[in-house]
Design a protein around this nucleic acid. Structure first.
Length: 485
RNA sequence: GCGGAGUUAGUCCAGCCUGGUAGGACGUCAGCUUCCCAAGCUGAAGGCCGCGGGUUCAAAUCCCGCACUCCGCACCA
């Protein structure tokens, strides 16, 4: 199914929809999750915690969304998280200053250069608007961070453009008080904010979006001493470099040098295992090794985890080896000490990050799991049972003869433990199909036989098969079938 | 931000050219029916036609702005 089909499902079944949609001044790039979306998101995050956080004994924190100016001074976002732009006086088109100058005059000016450098280059080389030949206004910086004013004096602060800065800032306290030991993973789930020029495609490019980030602090001299590497050495990953596309095990990737060390390979391996369990088609995924020009300003080595969808390859996760970029800058700016002891050695840890875009991941899960079952005239969201917004539908075959009451009774028994949905109204087939669309893996139906022998039918979403089971077996069956892997 | 195409009920769309304040399908709800897969029958709810302004006796319809959506450019988790 394609983007439009997913969009339609999202709107009709309460997965997500535009924010502030009843008002004319609603801005692009802001979306809300409805009940089904929240339920899916919560379960996705629980899987993330199980597969990555608990697996490695990482810590999870929950930091402020608004952070002080100093943080972004140190992190480099104030200077670097901005694009130099130039605007044509005549046709009002806006261009990236560095790129436009490089294209026309072959002069490379780094994007972080002073604005005068761009203006001078434009003057000297007589650079005009590529569209209409008009002159340019002076170069400006467009910073993608949202500025906020704190208190009556409107002290400047910013909405965080990535969640990880609180992890770096909090690192000294966390390491000391939580008895940290390298390598140490610290994780965070939360919102980040970027003032995108042109947000588009619902959850795929947002101005306010969810990230699940993991920052692993490590001793840079021990990147190949990775005890649990054996756990994932045979995990198959797909890698795209500038020259080739390969499918190989993590072990082979390290041996051939495509991945620089066991440490990085380990995390790419467990990330792959995680995404496999979300129900994304892992054969349509790849780690794209980024070239120097594509990398973020803080990254030394970068792999983007990308997945193919009907709107192209989507970047779901950015894996960056940030070295000591963040810690050394925060140490310099704050005068706080960030060195820690690793056995007898004093080290300033390096950082490898796994920065996951939650919204994009959820979209991809929906797209990869939605299919049109033409034979049975139904749309099925074939989610993994543990991710389904609704675990089980509880239905009465007909309302009369006490079936409704019996159905209510079963619903009452299980509704606190599972996401159950009670439905009495309409034809049974219609109710099954509605449940298929929100991905409920099971439907339990109460019929006349139920009143006689205490059994119900349980219908499976994907096969549409039914079997009779005792009501007393219901709990354990659902528990088993919807358990995380 | 630019270029192109759009915006009418929860969803998809007709009506617009040739002004006279809305219609279909699906979905939803209630009842009947129905003893297991979107059946049928009856009834109902739901839209000041994206927002604002203009022209007109009269605007979904013509004109102008703005917002949003989609496709390209650029940017990115």
């Amino acid at each position: 199914m394609n983007y439009e089909d997913v969009m339609k499902l999202a709107l009709e079944r309460g997965f997500y929809f535009p924010s502030c949609e009843i008002y004319p001044d609603a801005q692009a790039g802001f979306w809300e999750y409805g009940p089904s979306g929240v339920s899916l998101k919560n379960k996705f995050l629980e899987l993330w915690r199980r597969e990555l956080i608990r697996r490695d004994g990482m810590m999870e924190i929950d930091g402020s969304q608004i952070m002080s100016k100093s943080v972004f001074d140190a992190s480099g976002h104030l200077g670097n998280f901005a694009d130099p732009i130039i605007k044509c006086v005549k046709c009002k088109s806006t261009f990236r200053a560095d790129r436009t100058i490089a294209e026309i005059s072959k002069i490379e000016i780094p994007e972080s250069a002073d604005l005068e450098e761009f203006d001078n280059a434009i003057l000297k080389n007589n650079i005009k608007c590529p569209k209409c030949g008009g002159d340019f206004e002076n170069a400006k910086k467009f910073n993608m961070m949202f500025k906020v004013g704190i208190g009556p004096e409107e002290e400047p602060a910013y909405l965080r453009p990535e969640t990880c800065q609180s992890i770096f800032v909090d690192f000294p306290r966390l390491f000391k008080t939580m008895r940290g030991k390298l390598p140490l993973g610290i994780a965070q789930v939360g919102k980040s904010f970027r003032n995108e020029i042109s947000p588009r495609q619902s959850l795929l490019r947002l101005r306010e979006f969810y990230q699940a980030e993991i920052e692993v602090f490590c001793n840079p001299t021990k990147l190949d001493q990775m005890e649990n590497f054996s756990e994932i050495q045979d995990t198959v990953i797909r890698i795209l470099t500038s020259s080739e596309s390969v499918v190989m095990t993590c072990k082979e990737a390290v041996e051939t040098g495509i991945i620089p060390n066991k440490f990085v390979a380990y995390y790419l391996g467990i990330l792959t295992e995680f995404y496999d369990k979300t129900g994304i088609d892992i054969t349509k995924s790849r780690f794209r090794k980024l070239g120097n020009k594509e990398k973020a300003f803080y990254a030394q080595i970068a792999f983007d985890f990308e997945v193919e969808t009907t709107v192209g390859w989507l970047e779901l996760v950015a894996c960056n080896y940030r070295s000591d970029y963040d810690l050394s800058n925060h140490a310099k700016k704050s005068k706080e000490k960030f060195e820690v002891m690793d056995n007898d050695e004093k080290v300033l840890p390096h950082v490898f990050e796994i920065s996951m875009g939650i919204d994009r991941s959820l979209y991809t899960i929906l797209e990869h799991n939605l299919y049109d079952d033409k034979e049975h005239e139904r749309i099925v969201l074939s989610l993994k049972p543990y991710l389904s917004p609704i675990h089980v539908g509880i239905l009465s075959l007909v309302k009369k003869d006490g079936l409704k009451e019996k159905t209510d009774e079963i619903y009452l028994q299980i509704k606190r433990k599972y996401d159950a949905f009670l439905d009495h109204s309409g034809a049974i087939g219609r109710r099954y199909r509605r449940l298929d669309e929100v991905g409920a893996p099971f439907a339990v139906t109460v019929d006349h036989q139920t009143l006689q022998d205490g059994t119900v039918t349980i219908r499976k979403r994907d096969s549409m098969e039914q079997e009779r089971i005792k009501i007393s077996e219901l709990d354990s069956l659902i528990a088993e079938s919807t358990a995380y892997p």
